[in-house]
């Protein structure tokens, strides 16, 4: 089943398109007869190729300047919706994606379905699913009332696949006035340099939890991640304790990761953590408590002390390198 026109709000990641947009476009192709993107960023011509390759025939492009991307995205969408009447607009559940869907919902008085993991068309209904209670239950919700419907998706809900389409036609959108929302201006950007792959894109993720004992021991996680060419992650417990920045957090209120291998060190496996990582192909856990819930999702569980197992593991891997 399909519906007429599906739009994806594509965010910029530097001069590129954020990878979530390509995931959403891939899904949009499956459910929409027409798929178009609305790009908030400064270099639309440079991204028209990759957007087209993932199914967008047209990209409406708006430059946010120094205003918040989500605020300008919402205002641009309001204007464009009035002109082109899409049936569904898909957003990434990211910082700017959340701002955009929220601002737009208030502008055009439409409900939002957030934290979605999937979407389907059933007869004349559009239904989105979301995992609740830490991913133990799946709820399906149908939109009612008038289109356009607005839905935000957890990153990694879909796998991006190119369709081989030609570059999208770029339509510059001018005269977008975000009103007072646009008065929030970005004065400067602080980038904390990180080496290695991004957490959401890494083949291997090594995460640490409170079981590491103290902040200094997070070095074990970083060393192991580096040896495996992976990214270091964390449970919320150690993010809240200030050991590592929030950008490392995996789980319901952090990132969703789907690596080939996820290694959990001293993490109990609370449902809110599991929801962010149980989509990994393989899970290895080290925890000294044999009853820790993390073992219920682990392919290889080691009941042991991280301070004994991990240094030996690091040594063994270094010996092979």
């Amino acid at each position: 089943m399909s519906i007429g026109k599906v739009w994806v709000l594509a965010e910029a990641d530097g001069d590129e398109v954020a990878s979530a947009a390509l995931e959403l476009l891939t899904k949009a192709r499956e459910i929409g007869d027409t798929v178009e993107a609305v790009y908030v960023g400064s270099s639309a011509d440079a991204v028209a190729g990759v957007l087209g390759e993932h199914g967008a025939t047209t990209v409406y492009a708006v430059d946010p300047g120094d205003s918040l991307s989500g605020a300008v995205g919402a205002a641009a969408l309001e204007k464009l919706i009035g002109e082109h009447s899409p049936d569904l607009v898909m957003f990434d559940q990211s910082y700017d994606g959340r701002d955009a869907i929220a601002g737009l919902s208030a502008r055009i008085d439409r409900t939002v379905l957030t934290n979605s993991a999937d979407i389907r068309i059933d007869g004349d209904q559009v239904r989105a699913t979301t995992a609740i209670f830490g991913g133990t239950q799946i709820v399906e919700t149908a939109f009612e009332g008038e289109a356009p419907y607005l839905a935000a998706f957890r990153p990694k809900s879909f796998v991006a696949e190119p369709s081989g389409g030609a570059a999208a036609a770029v339509v510059a959108v001018d005269g977008v006035d975000a009103g007072r929302a646009g008065e929030a201006k970005v004065l400067d950007r602080h980038v904390e340099e990180a080496e290695g792959p991004k957490l959401e894109e890494a083949e291997v993720v090594v995460s640490g939890g409170r079981g590491l004992g103290e902040a200094e021991h997070y070095a074990l996680v970083e060393t192991l991640a580096k040896l495996l060419k992976g990214a270091p992650g964390a449970s919320r417990a150690i993010v809240d304790a200030g050991w590592v920045p929030y950008s490392h957090q995996v789980g319901q209120t952090g990132k969703t990761v789907k690596p080939k291998v996820y290694i959990a060190l001293g993490i109990s496996g609370a449902t809110q953590h599991l929801v962010g990582m149980k989509g990994a192909d393989n899970i290895i856990a080290v925890n000294k408590d044999a009853e820790a819930p993390i073992f219920s999702v682990s392919d290889l569980g080691i009941v042991g002390d991280v301070h004994k197992v991990v240094p030996k593991l690091i040594e063994a891997l270094e010996a092979r390198a």
Binding site: V286, A290, F295, S298, D299, G301, I302, V303, V310, K312
Partner: peptide, 12 residues
């Protein structure tokens, strides 16, 4: 769940 092993010094 898969395999679960008790560390006896060589689980690594």
């Amino acid at each position: 769940a898969g395999e679960k092993i008790e560390d006896e010094g060589d689980a690594h």
